[in-house]
């Protein structure tokens, strides 16, 4: 109890655990409610790699594709680390 109060006084980012629960729930429900299974998402990822590889060197291992949402909308967010660009010919 005291520890709780101290944590909240001194650590500003200490999020209430219910806020964490709510955010995790929102995200998991985006997946649940959509027809996009992890398998479909993985296929999408592989197709993305194929297309982008034609234009630049990317870190295929680190590439991440995921849903993110705020209160209003859902976005498909791809984080694609670029290793280098193909030299213009």
């Amino acid at each position: 109890m005291l520890l709780d109060i101290l944590t909240r006084l001194f650590i500003k980012d200490a999020m209430n655990s219910k806020d964490i629960a709510r955010e995790r729930l929102r995200l998991v429900l985006v997946h649940d409610r959509s027809s996009v299974s992890p398998e479909v998402l993985n296929n999408l990822k592989e197709d993305l790699i194929k297309v982008i590889r034609q234009y630049m060197d990317i870190d295929e291992e680190a590439l991440a594709v995921n849903f993110e949402n705020d209160d209003e909308s859902v976005a498909l967010v791809a984080n694609i680390p670029v290793k280098g660009f193909r030299r213009a010919v």
């Binding site: 709780d4 209430n16 655990s17 219910k18 806020d19 629960a21 709510r22 729930l25 929102r26 429900l29």
Partner: peptide
């Protein structure tokens, strides 16, 4: 627990 912020409240659940 709700008051402490450690349990989702009614509105959180209804929103979802």
């Amino acid at each position: 627990m709700v008051k402490r912020g450690d349990m989702m409240d009614i509105d959180d659940i209804l929103d979802i």
